[in-house]
Design a protein around this nucleic acid. Structure first.
Length: 588
RNA sequence: GGGGGCGUAGUGUAGUGGUUUAACAUGUCGGCCUGUCAAGCCGAAGAUCGCGGGUUCAAAUCCCGUCGCUCCCGCCA
């Protein structure tokens, strides 16, 4: 072994110990006769003192050393004099007096600082990802991820789940995200698809009688990226037989409630997780993934303002729309410019405008004041619980737009007013999703979650009577405003499954080709089952205080889905394409 | 597919009201230095201002195009 200890693990207790260390040169301070080297390895950093008095050879070697050289040091752990303790460091009470310094490898000057987590151009970080990963922030995040995943494995194992792998080369399924395809060499013109999730396979594992399955599964979706979306991402995919909805929720709730204090002790989990119906989430927060760390809930004013003379309100009420508002505490002083920005946010979500009422000391102010009676204004303020100094924001439009606009404003105030404790982890369940969604463009019903979800009323007659009213046993877990997991109790009855396909308008022959294996499997004694799939990347981003899941993935893609380090995707030799029976059409 | 932001020594930034030898910090290289801890002091090198084209007497600066990174909308059952 090159080393007897990790650099960062040395403490006062090691004083007097002879140690062999190996790592990277973090910083170097050369005084001529004495050279300080801050040596770094995975465990952390420690100060090495190389004195000419101790070893002329060691001093000579240390003088050659530069940032990020890989060196080996042999020496003795020594207590630092009281006035030279570095309280910033875990190893700050000691130092290693070097007897020998060996250069194991040199390094070019790195393209950015390793010892500092300061901002560096994203493209440069990704091009030199292996250097970026050396930096404290990424080391911390990747190690945190390891600990979280290990916790999950131990927890799931203890709960009686079996870890089972499923294929990456599988079959494209209709709907959902665009698939990543893999051409078949053996079967010209045919393609595998990388799984968007192991959904079908885990259900088949339930049919197979494993009862409890889990997998830290890579999933692939060929859609445009966002801060919370990468083309490949990782889920804790699990499925359970002979359970009801609450049994599934219970596993996840216990797991995360135990995990957070274990891997991030400075974070506080709100427990038990609040439960909201989908309808309630939209009603109170305007979103199906509400940030539950703060209030600022939406209040419905449709009824109290239905008789208003104000045309904006009249129209909304007349068109079966809604009038809702939120209160921004202390924001009555907002300038014209700030109010315009709020209006822009509302408009971006489809609202035609935003009604603002500033409760200034001299009375209510705002462009709509002249259209409202004093009585109406006081009813609004009372309903919303607004007091002097507050800013009221009202959107009147169709339900969807009202929800989207006020939700966006709510998050804007969250950020501007600093309404959340960054160390709060606020999980919440969103339940009772609708089974179907009307797809106006295609003029048909789509599955709101996926077509394998168990509908509450499950006879064809009950469902077709009013598809919009059919709720399902689908559920989401949200955390700090992110959708963190999604799942459902599945259909295990082939009759119900074919009824769902019928309502979704699948051509029976087509459904058989796409899902025949599922239908057939269900006809061989499929147990009632359900499951869920928490997104590991998103959860880790929240725990690591990162806004982008890139920061918790060792080798992520850019927002254009490229790998700047390896330069992928890339062209391939013609022969490879010929083997795959593929010709490139440069026209399209 | 659409919209916004960014691109200037290795890195992070300033300069963007047209006329500079393109500034500052840090890093790099050399020198001094035996107790520093983002060491200090002295000295040096380092930038065709992302790329291409245009306007002009004159472009880092204005215009057009293009590339890259990023955020958002669409998309993501």
């Amino acid at each position: 072994m090159f080393k007897s200890h990790g650099c960062g693990e040395l403490r006062l207790a090691h004083v007097g110990t002879d140690v062999k260390l190996a790592g990277w040169v973090h910083l170097r301070r050369d005084f001529g006769g004495v050279i300080f080297i801050v040596l770094r390895d995975r465990a952390g950093v420690v100060q090495v003192v190389v004195s000419a008095d101790v070893s002329a050879d060691a001093r000579a070697a240390a003088a050659e050393v530069r940032s990020e050289y890989v060196i080996q040091v042999e020496g003795t752990v020594r207590r630092r004099p009281d006035d030279q303790v570095n309280p910033e460091w875990l190893t700050g009470e000691i130092e290693v007096e070097a007897r020998s310094v060996q250069i194991l490898n040199t390094s070019k000057t790195p393209p950015f600082y390793i010892y500092d987590d300061g901002a560096v151009d994203e493209a440069l970080r990704l091009r030199y990802r292996y250097l970026d990963l050396r930096r404290a922030r990424m080391q911390r995040n990747i190690i945190l991820r390891h600990r979280a995943v290990q916790f999950i494995r131990q927890f799931m194992n203890a709960e009686g789940f079996l870890e089972i792998e499923t294929p990456y080369l599988f079959k494209s399924t209709p709907e959902g995200a665009r698939d990543y395809l893999v051409p078949s060499r053996v079967h010209p013109g045919k393609f595998y698809a990388l799984p968007q999730s192991p959904q079908q396979l885990k259900q088949l594992l339930m049919v197979a009688g494993f009862e409890r399955y889990y997998q830290i599964a890579r999933c692939f979706r060929d859609e445009d990226l966002r801060g919370d979306r990468q083309p490949e991402f990782t889920q804790l995919d699990f499925e359970m037989s002979f359970v009801h909805r609450d049994d599934v929720l219970d596993v996840v709730e216990r797991m995360f409630t135990a995990m957070v204090p274990e891997v991030t002790p400075h974070k506080r989990v709100v427990s038990p997780f609040p439960r909201l119906s989908y309808a309630e989430a939209l009603d109170r927060y305007g979103s199906d993934k509400p940030d539950l760390r703060f209030g600022l809930e939406l209040t419905d004013l449709t009824e109290v303002l239905s008789a208003s003379e104000f045309r904006v309100f009249q129209e909304a009420a007349a068109n079966r729309g809604q009038i809702k508002g939120i209160v921004a505490p202390g924001c009555a002083v907002y300038t014209r410019r700030e109010l315009d920005e709020l209006t822009e946010i509302a408009k971006r979500e489809g609202a035609r405008g935003l009604v603002t009422l500033a409760l200034a000391p001299e009375g209510p102010k705002g462009p709509a004041v002249k259209f409202l009676t004093e009585g109406e204004i006081s009813v609004i303020a009372e309903k919303l619980g607004a007091t002097e100094g507050d800013l009221i924001c009202i959107v009147a439009a169709e339900r969807r737009v009202v929800a989207a606009a006020l939700s966006a404003l709510r998050l804007t105030f969250r950020d501007r007013l600093g309404l959340v404790d960054p160390d709060l982890i606020a999980f919440g369940w969103v339940l009772d999703f609708p089974m179907f969604e009307w797809n106006a463009e295609a003029e048909r019903w789509d599955a709101a979650h996926h077509p394998f979800t168990w509908p509450r009323p499950h006879t064809y007659e009950e469902m077709i009577a009013d598809p919009a009213a059919v709720l399902s046993d689908a559920y989401d877990l949200v955390c700090n405003g992110w959708e963190i997991a999604s799942g459902s109790i599945r259909i295990h009855d082939p009759q119900v499954q074919s009824d769902i396909f019928r309502i979704l308008g699948y051509d029976p022959a087509d459904a058989k080709a796409k899902f025949g294996h599922m239908m057939e499997a269900f006809s061989y004694g499929a147990p009632p089952h359900g499951g869920m799939a928490p997104g590991i990347d998103r959860l880790l981003a929240i725990l690591a205080d990162e806004a982008n899941i890139r920061e918790v993935i060792a080798f992520p893609k850019t927002s254009q889905a490229t790998d700047l380090m390896a330069d992928a995707p890339a062209e391939v030799p013609d022969q490879l394409l010929r083997d795959l029976h593929i010709r490139i059409d440069n026209e399209s």
